[in-house]
Computed example of a mutant assay.
Amino acid sequence: MKMVVVSDTHLPKRKKGLPERLLDELKDAELIIHAGDWQTLDVYHQLRTYGRVEGVYGNVDDEEIIALLPSKKIVEAGGFRFGITHGHGKGKTTEKRAIEAFKGEKVDCIIFGHSHIPVKRYEGDILIFNPGSPTDKRKQKMFSFGVFTISDRITAEHIFFK
């Protein structure tokens, strides 16, 4: 199973549309996860043309997106449980807030956004993953998003591009 993971698209504020590099990966994705800061519901509808979309709202999303999506959720795919949250809030780091959001819940992976900083590491047995942003790299050298391959395990990679 192929899963594309994205966050912080901030459309149309940062770019006019989703980049071709991301659109190429979406063509054969079975599941698309967005970890918030869509900025517009048009992104949700565009992603849905490629496949099943699961996501959460972020701190810049409007009431229309907030009415459609939760602030955090757990999605089951390929026999694994993925916790999704944007990670915004007060105190602690974005990563620590994301991890804390799923404290006491059984998840195999926590996906978050907000910082625009790509992260892929393990906290015990839990994969901690921030895809970065495909449209607003901020101080990062490259734009990024994630591609997961799910079989008997989760293989996660960042796709970096200019």
Rank of each mutant, 00 (worst) to 15 (best):
G36R: 02
V147C: 04
A156I: 04
L69G: 07
K73I: 12
E157P: 00
H45C: 01
C109R: 10
V107E: 10
H45N: 14
K106G: 03
G78P: 12
G78H: 07
Y57D: 07
P134A: 03
R21Q: 12
E64Y: 12
F145N: 00
E157Y: 03
I154F: 06
S144N: 03
H86I: 09
F160W: 09
E64T: 15
Y50K: 10
T85Y: 01
G58K: 04
S115N: 05
I84V: 15
S115G: 09
K15L: 10
T9G: 05
G89Y: 00
F102G: 13
G124K: 09
K2R: 15
V43H: 07
I150Q: 05
T9P: 06
L23E: 05
Y122K: 14
F80I: 07
D136P: 00
P19A: 13
S144A: 14
G132W: 07
A67D: 15
V56E: 09
R81K: 15
F161L: 02
K96Y: 12
V5P: 00
E76V: 12
R21I: 10
Q39C: 07
D24H: 09
R48E: 08
E20G: 00
K106W: 11
Q39W: 08
G104M: 05
T85N: 06
F102P: 13
H116Y: 04
D62C: 10
P131S: 01
P19R: 06
I74W: 06
F148G: 00
G132R: 05
Q140M: 15
H88G: 10
E105G: 02
G83T: 06
I128L: 11
E157G: 03
E54T: 02
L26I: 09
A35N: 07
K72L: 12
L18S: 02
D61P: 15
Q46H: 10
S71A: 08
L127R: 04
A101P: 12
G104E: 08
Q46W: 04
I150Y: 07
M3Y: 02
K162M: 02
K162S: 08
G113V: 10
S115C: 08
T135W: 04
L23W: 01
I66V: 15
N130T: 11
R52M: 08
A98P: 13
I66Y: 13
K72N: 14
L68Q: 11
V56D: 13
L22E: 06
G55H: 07
V60H: 09
L31R: 04
T93R: 07
L68M: 14
R153E: 13
V75W: 07
E20K: 12
K120W: 00
G124S: 11
I110M: 08
P12C: 11
G58I: 07
G132F: 03
K72W: 06
L22A: 08
H34D: 07
G87V: 09
E30V: 05
A156R: 02
D152L: 01
S151T: 14
N59L: 03
T149I: 05
F160C: 03
H10C: 02
L11E: 03
G87W: 06
H10E: 05
E54H: 04
I99D: 01
D62M: 01
I126E: 05
L22F: 09
Y44N: 04
L69C: 06
R97I: 04
N130G: 11
A35K: 07
I33Q: 02
V56R: 10
H114L: 06
R97D: 07
M142G: 10
G113A: 09
